[in-house]
């Protein structure tokens, strides 16, 4: 089971901070598309991290069972 996590305004829109989804051979781009439609996330500027590393969501990537995929809103430190 891959884990999907949400932060800030994105977590507010999804109504949760974490969910586990069974994603056998799913493509990252397809997952993001599904989440955008499900929660209306299209309107948010965001970064995508896979296992703590920011990735380009346009790149082809097959999600692994142990992956942690995180949707990060704009950073606001300081």
């Amino acid at each position: 089971m891959a884990v999907i996590r949400y932060f800030g305004q994105i977590a507010e829109a999804t109504g949760c901070t974490k969910e586990q989804i069974s994603l056998v051979n799913s493509d990252l781009k397809e997952l993001l598309q599904t989440l955008n439609e499900q929660y209306g996330l299209e309107r948010f500027q965001k970064n995508i991290a896979v296992n703590q590393v920011i990735v380009n969501p346009e790149d082809a990537y097959t999600i692994q069972d142990t992956d942690e995929i995180v949707l990060l809103p704009p950073f606001a430190g300081g």
Partner: peptide, 14 residues
Amino acid sequence: IVNRVKEEVPIFGK
């Protein structure tokens, strides 16, 4: 340091 913390560290502020 301050610039990099602001730009690169995933911190969120409500």
